[in-house]
Design a protein around this nucleic acid. Structure first.
Length: 474
RNA sequence: UCCUGAGUAGCUCAGCUGGUUAGAGCAUCUGACUGUUAAUCAGAGGGUCCGGGGUUCAAGUCCCUGCUCAGGAGCCA
C-alpha cells in the first residue's frame, strides 16, 4: 500500500540530510558568488555579487553604485581613502556596465535595498557605453524599440516575475486537480472557429497551414481520452486589432472537461481565477509593491463572483440608460436602447463592470453571435450555453467558454449554417459518433490576466517580446 | 479596415498671427563636494526641425503628398 510521506512525517535527520544532499549534488558550482536576495542572511559576511550598474551617484570621495542582479538591488559603497584604485575604477563605471563586487554586507536604513556593501574588490566585465534608457521619462515608441533593454527596468522586471507566477499558478491548479496537460498543435490545417483571420504559411506539398488560434477542438478530443485536460501555449490571431488589450501572438490556457455542464464550467472558472490571483498575492508582494498595485482590490477577488445572464445584462443596460451608438446610413450616429441579440462591445462591458469589484460572468449569449460548436440552451434555443468572464478595474474579458454541442445532428446543422467545410470537421464529428458526452471548457488569456493583476496600462508590457499589428521587432 | 492625434539634440519636450545665429531639462564630457536616493553646483560639446514637393522676400511654423508612431472602434483571450 502506498503511503504519501509529507516532510513533517519524516525523521528529521533524514529530511535535512536529504535537503543537504539535494543542494550539494546540484549547486556546488554556483557557490562562487551570492545573489542579492540572499543578503538578509549574510549580514556581516564577505560576499561576492555579480550584476549590472543600475545607478551611480556620489559626493566627493564617496561613491554609491546601485547594483542589480535580477534578484534585487544592493547599494555598494566606495570610499576613496580606502583605495584610490578601486575608487577610480568605480568612478569610470557607466549605467548597465557589468561588474563583480566583493565586500562586506552591512544593514543600513539609508540604502535603497536595506543593505550596503563596502566594496573591497571591483572587477569590470564590460564597460557599457551610452546605455539608451536613462532613469528619466521615455516615450512608448522608444521603449518598445528598446524592449530588449527595457526588460531590465524595475517595473518590467516585476511584471515578468508576476507573469511567471501566473503561469505557475495555472499549471499548479490544473496539475493538482486531476487534469492532464495535452499540447495542441500550432500548425493547423484550417480555422478552428471559422471566423478569425489566421496567419498562413506554406506547408510542403500539402498547400497551406495556419498558425493555431485555439487548441480547443484538439482539447475536446483529448478530453474524451483523459476526462479532464488542459492545453497551454501560444495562439495567433491575424486580426488587425490595435488596442491596449490585443496582441497577434498570445498565450492561452484552455481546460476541457468531459461530463461538465455550463454551471460546472463556470464554477471551475471562478475557482481557477481566484486561485491565480491569490497565488500571486501570496508569492509576489514585493513585485506588486514595486508596481504600486492596489492589492486591496486583488484581495477582494474571492468566490463567489458575480453572475448574470446576457438577457439580464441587456435589461440592466437599458434600465441604467446605457445607450448603443448606432451608425445611420447617412453617416450620423444615433443612440438607441440596447437591442437583444446584439453582441456587447467594450462600452457595454465597461458599463456593466463599473458596479463590481470582483469578476463577473455573463452567460447564455444569443446563439447567433457565438461560435458553431457551442450548445444551445435546451430551455431557450435562441441562446447558447456560453459564458464570458469580465475582470474588474477596466480589465475586460479574460475568459470565454461554453458547453459544447454534443449532438451530432445539431452540430452538423451548425457547421452548414456557418458555411464551414464539413470534411475538415469529420474527425471532430467522430467525437460525437463514438461515445459523445456533455462537455465544457473555456480559454483564459494569459496576457490579459497578467495585465489585470499587475495593473499594467497596456498588454504590450506584459509579454516579454510582444507581437503587435505594427511591431514585430525586437 | 475606419476615426483621431503626433513626429524638433541620445531621451522628454517648448518654440505665439511665418521674421536675426532653433531653446530648456535630463543624458554625455571636464571640474568641486564623506551618505547619495531622478544628488547638487560650475563649465563644455551636441540639430538633415521625419522624407519629398509647393506657396512666400522669408517656412520648424502654411498647403499637398509619402513614411513612421500613438490612442480608440470593430474582432476577440
Amino acid at each position: 500500500m502506498a503511503v504519501a510521506l509529507r516532510p513533517q512525517q519524516l525523521n528529521k535527520t533524514i529530511f535535512y540530510s536529504l535537503i543537504t544532499f539535494t543542494i550539494m549534488s546540484t549547486t556546488p558550482r554556483y557557490k562562487s558568488y551570492q545573489r542579492i536576495e540572499q543578503l538578509p542572511q549574510l549580514v556581516g559576511e564577505k560576499v561576492t555579487l555579480n550584476g549590472w550598474v543600475a545607478n551611480k551617484t556620489g559626493k566627493g570621495k564617496l561613491l554609491f553604485i546601485v547594483l542589480r542582479d535580477g534578484t534585487g538591488i544592493c547599494q555598494c559603497v566606495v570610499f576613496k581613502p580606502n583605495s584610490e584604485e578601486i575608487f577610480e575604477t568605480a568612478k569610470s563605471l557607466t549605467l548597465e556596465s557589468s561588474v563583480q563586487i566583493t565586500g562586506t554586507v552591512r544593514s543600513d536604513e539609508r540604502s535603497p535595498g536595506g543593505f550596503d556593501i563596502d566594496v573591497e574588490e571591483l572587477r569590470v566585465f564590460q564597460l557599457a557605453k551610452d546605455y539608451p534608457i536613462t532613469p528619466k521619462d521615455h516615450g512608448v515608441d522608444f521603449l518598445m524599440t528598446n524592449r530588449h533593454l527595457w526588460l531590465r527596468s524595475t517595473r518590467q522586471h516585476a511584471i515578468m516575475r508576476i507573469r511567471a507566477s501566473v503561469v505557475k499558478a495555472i499549471r499548479d491548479f490544473f496539475d493538482g486537480n486531476g487534469f492532464t496537460l495535452v499540447d495542441s498543435p500550432i500548425l493547423t490545417p484550417a480555422a478552428c472557429e471559422g471566423t478569425s483571420t489566421l496567419f498562413e504559411t506554406k506547408y510542403f506539398d500539402l498547400g497551406s497551414a495556419y498558425l493555431s488560434q485555439s487548441g480547443q477542438l484538439y482539447a475536446e478530443a483529448s478530453a474524451m481520452a483523459q476526462g479532464r485536460v488542459y492545453t497551454f501555449g501560444p495562439t495567433f490571431r491575424a486580426e488587425r486589432s490595435k488596442t491596449r488589450r490585443h496582441l497577434t501572438e498570445f498565450w492561452m490556457v484552455e481546460p476541457e472537461m468531459a461530463f461538465f455542464d455550463l454551471n460546472d464550467d463556470m464554477d471551475l472558472a471562478e475557482e481557477f481565477v481566484e486561485y491565480i490571483v491569490q497565488y500571486v498575492l501570496k508569492t509576489r508582494q514585493q513585485e506588486l509593491k514595486a508596481l504600486d498595485r492596489d492589492i486591496t482590490k486583488l484581495e477582494k477577488v474571492r468566490r463567489p463572483f458575480h453572475r448574470m445572464s446576457y438577457t439580464e445584462a441587456v435589461e440592466w443596460l437599458n434600465n441604467n440608460n446605457v445607450k448603443l451608438d448606432k451608425k445611420q446610413p447617412d453617416g450620423s450616429t444615433i443612440q438607441i436602447d440596447f437591442p437583444w441579440g446584439e453582441d456587447f462591445g467594450a462600452p457595454q462591458e465597461e458599463a456593466i463592470m463599473e458596479q463590481f469589484e470582483k469578476p463577473c460572468i455573463i452567460h447564455r449569449y444569443p446563439s447567433e453571435v457565438k461560435a458553431f460548436y457551442m450548445k444551445r440552451d435546451p430551455d431557450n434555443p435562441k441562446v447558447a450555453m456560453a459564458m464570458d468572464m469580465l475582470a474588474p478595474e477596466g480589465a475586460g474579458e479574460i475568459i470565454g467558454g461554453s458547453q459544447r454541442e454534443d449532438n451530432i445532428e445539431l452540430l452538423e446543422e451548425r457547421i452548414k449554417e456557418h458555411d464551414l467545410p464539413m470534411e475538415s470537421f469529420e474527425w471532430y464529428l467522430d467525437l460525437r459518433r463514438y461515445g459523445s458526452v456533455p462537455h465544457s471548457g473555456f480559454g483564459l488569456g494569459l496576457e490579459r490576466t497578467v495585465k489585470w493583476i499587475s495593473g499594467a496600462e497596456h498588454i504590450r508590457e506584459v509579454a516579454p517580446f510582444p507581437r503587435m499589428l505594427y511591431r514585430i521587432a525586437p
